[in-house]
Amino acid sequence: MRNISDIIEEYLKATIQRTGGDPLEIKRGDIAKKFQCVPSQINYVIQTRFTLEKGYQVESKRGGGGYIRIIKVSPHDELALLDHMISMIGNHIDQHTAENMIIRLYEEQAVTKRETNLMISVVSRDNYQLQMSQRDEVRAKILKAMLETLKYRETN
């Protein structure tokens, strides 16, 4: 059974898709009424499901005429996507963020399902018997190495 967050996410993504890539402007209260939930539930969905590593940019304006604008960010090409992700990683990355980035690669058709599963298994915290900060540092280095490798496909 799907929860309310999944339903709201699905609705917002479908609405973005229907707009043909144009930014989606919503009022938090209107969406909360539509799904009969509290406005903070809308905040939660947007903050956790519409992040930059998942390919979304979110802008908001508070107040009476306030809105939340969700923009689907599309890379110019696969190389630009990989370069952007490498620059986002920095020196540390947690497992959840790394997985989101890998899933985005799959959604953008930059990797196969098999490559996705392989990459997700590599960034799993179960593979690193280290303190959290060290684990996030090692994960960042490994993810960057995988992304760099993806930039150079075989030509044979």
Rank of each mutant, 00 (worst) to 15 (best):
P75N: 01
I93K: 07
R62P: 02
Y106M: 03
E137M: 14
T19L: 14
L118R: 11
Q36G: 08
S133M: 14
A145E: 07
Q109P: 09
L147P: 04
L130E: 03
R104H: 12
V123G: 06
G29T: 13
T51S: 09
P23F: 05
Q129V: 14
Q36S: 11
E137W: 11
G63C: 10
L79P: 14
Q129I: 14
N91P: 03
A140E: 00
I71H: 05
S124Y: 05
I103A: 07
Q95L: 07
V73M: 04
Q41R: 12
I16Q: 08
T19P: 00
N100D: 11
P39G: 04
N127L: 11
R114H: 08
Y11I: 02
Q41K: 11
M1A: 10
Q36V: 04
M101S: 01
C37D: 02
G65L: 12
T112G: 02
L150R: 12
E53C: 09
G64P: 06
Y11G: 00
L81Q: 07
A140D: 01
S5C: 07
R153A: 12
V38K: 14
Q47W: 01
Y152K: 05
F35V: 03
R139F: 03
E99V: 13
T112N: 04
V138M: 05
Q47E: 07
V38D: 14
I68L: 02
R153K: 15
L147K: 01
S5N: 11
Q17L: 04
D126K: 12
K61S: 15
K33C: 01
I120D: 01
V111H: 04
Q109C: 15
D6H: 13
N3R: 09
Q47S: 08
Y106C: 06
I142N: 00
T19R: 03
T19M: 10
D22M: 15
T116Q: 09
G66E: 05
T116M: 15
Q17W: 10
Y44A: 06
E107W: 11
K33Y: 03
I7H: 01
Q134R: 06
Q47R: 10
I16E: 03
D77R: 05
H92G: 01
E154M: 15
I8Y: 03
H96M: 08
Q109A: 15
I26P: 02
R18D: 12
M88D: 08
L105G: 08
E148A: 08
L118Y: 13
I102N: 00
V123L: 13
N91Y: 13
V73Q: 09
E107L: 12
G90Q: 05
Y44V: 08
L150Y: 13
L12K: 01
L12M: 09
H96K: 13
H84L: 12
I31L: 04
V38L: 12
G21H: 06
F50Y: 14
I142L: 09
G29I: 13
R49Y: 03
A32G: 12
S74V: 15
V138D: 00
F35R: 02
T149M: 08
S60C: 08
A80L: 07
S40K: 15
T51N: 09
A110C: 14
H84I: 02
R153Q: 13
G20Q: 04
Y44R: 04
V123S: 10
S5A: 13
S5V: 05
H96D: 14
S74L: 15
S133D: 11
R62V: 07
R28F: 03
R18S: 14
N91C: 06
E53L: 05
V111L: 02
I93E: 02
G66R: 05
N117T: 09
